[in-house]
């Protein structure tokens, strides 16, 4: 068993007898289980999601992760809110608040069962995007908040080929 020697060295320095007994017992059970193949029950990843689903944990799609990285560049300057107001937008969350909420609160929103409410009234007119000094595709952030858990990422999310942000500055917009 690889690495057992390293473990023994460390253990010899700090371990207690009681710990050793427990470890040997669990170790024997572990080896026995491996031999009988009882470890192979079900897909562990499915088990993980089953167990952590109620906490809102789900894998982020590549598009979501690029969007999150782009959103990190936010300067909280509020220009997007002004553009949204001029365009007559009435989203439940101001675009500025949506960018803040997007990745910081996504988990809490899901846990509280509130996801999907957050941006339900954003018209996706994208008036907010061109005024962002950091080039964050803000209307996509609104869309990603509005998306229901497990749904597909919003259409038009940054292309997977290009790096999403350079030096965490946000993607260039062509």
């Amino acid at each position: 068993m690889r690495g057992y020697r390293g473990f023994l060295r460390e253990f010899a320095r700090t371990g207690s007898l009681r710990a050793l007994v427990l470890q040997v017992r669990t170790g024997i059970a572990h080896v026995a289980r491996q031999w009988t193949g009882r470890n192979e029950v079900g897909n562990p990843l499915a088990r993980f999601f089953e167990s952590y689903g109620p906490d809102g944990i789900r894998p982020a799609s590549a598009a979501e992760r690029r969007l999150r990285l782009a959103s990190e560049a936010c300067l909280v300057c509020g220009l997007c809110s002004a553009a949204c107001a001029e365009a007559g937008g009435r989203p439940l969350l101001d675009p500025r608040d949506a960018v803040i909420a997007a990745a910081r609160l996504s988990l809490d929103l899901r846990r509280a069962g509130l996801e999907g409410l957050a941006a339900s009234s954003c018209a996706a007119c994208a008036a907010c995007d061109p005024v962002c000094p950091q080039g964050i595709p803000i209307h996509l952030v609104q869309e990603s908040l509005a998306a229901r858990p497990g749904s597909e990422p919003p259409q038009g999310a940054p292309d997977s080929g290009a790096p999403a942000a350079r030096d965490a500055r946000g993607p260039g917009i062509g």
Binding site: M1, G3, Y4, F7, E10, Q23, G27, H30, Y52, I57
Partner: peptide, 25 residues
């Protein structure tokens, strides 16, 4: 709640079986 993810690398001092015994404990 914080779910932890503990990757094991091939050059880690302690191998996966030992880690799993610890986690089973």
């Amino acid at each position: 709640r914080i779910p932890f993810l503990m990757p094991v690398f091939s050059d880690d001092r302690i191998g996966p079986e030992i880690v799993e015994v610890g986690l089973e404990m």
